[in-house]
Write a protein that binds this DNA or RNA. Sequence first.
DNA 1: CCTAGTGTTATATGTTACTATTACACTATA
DNA 2: TATAGTGTAATAGTAACATATAACACTAGG
Lengths: 124, 124
Amino acid sequence: MQFDDKVPIYYQIKEYIYRQIITGKLAPGDKMPSVRQLAVDLTVNVNTIQRALSELTAENLIEPKRGKGNFVTATDQQISELKEQLINEHLQQLYKNLRELNVSDEEILNDLGRYIDKQRDDQK
Amino acid sequence: MQFDDKVPIYYQIKEYIYRQIITGKLAPGDKMPSVRQLAVDLTVNVNTIQRALSELTAENLIEPKRGKGNFVTATDQQISELKEQLINEHLQQLYKNLRELNVSDEEILNDLGRYIDKQRDDQK
DNA sequence: CCTAGTGTTATATGTTACTATTACACTATA
DNA sequence: TATAGTGTAATAGTAACATATAACACTAGG
């Protein structure tokens, strides 16, 4: 996994696990990979994994069991709220960023439309 | 100015100056506020200002003159390219973030449309 | 009971970011 | 020529982040 060196790694791992949960790769009740395995997979130190997991635990999304592993405890309700929240934050971020560059509401929508069309073309 | 504690301050200052230039608050040829004044205005250390300015200098957007100050040397051409690049990066960021949450192209556009409408309403 | 696989915790080390402080180089001007 | 206002650079200290390493606590299975 490639990290943005402008943002703490533990935080990017947290976001990565958010995604795993939201996209269903990790479902309620699932056992997560062990901290040591995650450390290998993401090529970071175990302590860095722990830093991310401890925050997710504090947010009641996962729960550790000594000797067993970490388990997803988030409910479907929690997950859908989390997804909505993250989407909203990202939209807000874009909106704020572009407005700060003096891009109008209309242009923002047009530019995004063009960008998405371009992605579709590049895909081919 | 409020900073995001997940991103280096010097980098956020760099982005701030990008905005000043793109929105015309700083025009080609303009003299910038002194490093000491910027440090006071943004409530950071002079060295942090320098860190940002030295990168902007390396990008040929500004140029320092000993004893005189820092001056905007970017051309209109450079500025419009910079603006386009930043807009593109932000669009790409949103697109990537939402696609990673399994949001479809169509939903992305709809969600943004709704978000912008909501902003307009909240404005009143 | 032993062992392998879990989570948890602690220590030491290195790097980067930021601050505070000081000093130096240069320019304009009174 | 002195002074105030510029940029520049160096030092030292603090904090956060990440690493390496080791040890400890618990669980499951042979």
